[in-house]
Nucleic acid binder design. Structure first.
Lengths: 119, 119
DNA sequence: GTTATCTGTTACAAAAAGGATAGTACTTAC
DNA sequence: GTAAGTACTATCCTTTTTGTAACAGATAAC
């Protein structure tokens, strides 16, 4: 499996772009992370992810179109809606974990840099 | 290592945000992918990644500040500049690979969906 | 009837990101 | 001196993204 030829790199770039198209932006991955703790209602999601209803609505629609979340209307007193991760969204586990991991280690690196500077 | 508590999820969200702050947006990961095939000059990068000089300049500066690429001015006839990945950028390998992998599989999934539809 | 909750939408505004075009500065080649 | 190649920067503009505030429809509690 040779890497770094002009062609394989071009494919890699396209694949990365494809992923970013679906899951890029400020919110989608965060929403998935939040939903990993279980299904949530609209307002609940809005509060937990600290995202305004307008954006949340749009993001959820896009994610539903891409098969990442499912939307279920419940026949309750005030109609509630449950958003839940789909099985397909689990294919993003590696992506989520790697981003999360890097975020941790990068923050630690930054903090250490600050500590060294202040000595 | 319990997961999905309110607290661990909040941390996960923050970590993901941290990562996206550094490496999010349309270009940075793509530029890293391109630079994985070796150091490149400014115009060369601009051509290969199909990115306009203005944006490229800005992105490279940010990436340099975050320690992901190094900039080396070479004392050649027309002064050239070499951009190269730093060792630190290698910590992003998992991120790159997982995004790339997901992009491939997602594209295949889409294509299959189309094939089924057209029958 | 007023207020509250839930799920959104609409209208408007602001900000961030991205892109197009040209120009600067330097050097070499013709 | 004209053109061409290097590495950018400056200006202007469009698009995308994000945010705020208000509102709508439905139901229930007081």
């Amino acid at each position: 499996m040779e890497k770094h030829t002009a062609e394989s790199c071009s494919k890699a770039r396209m694949a990365i772009r494809d992923t970013l198209d679906v899951v890029g932006g400020k919110w989608k991955l965060v929403l998935i992370a939040v939903l990993q703790s279980g299904k949530k209602g609209f307002n609940q999601l809005s509060r937990e992810a600290e995202i305004s209803p307008r954006i949340l609505s749009k993001e959820l629609q896009e994610m539903e179109m891409n098969g990442l979340v499912s939307r279920k209307v419940c026949d309750t007193k005030p109609v509630t809606v449950q958003y839940e991760l789909t099985p397909y969204s689990e294919t993003l586990t590696d992506v989520l974990l790697s981003l999360e991991k890097w975020g941790y280690q990068h923050r630690n690196k930054i903090i250490q840099g600050i500590e060294l500077t202040s000595k």
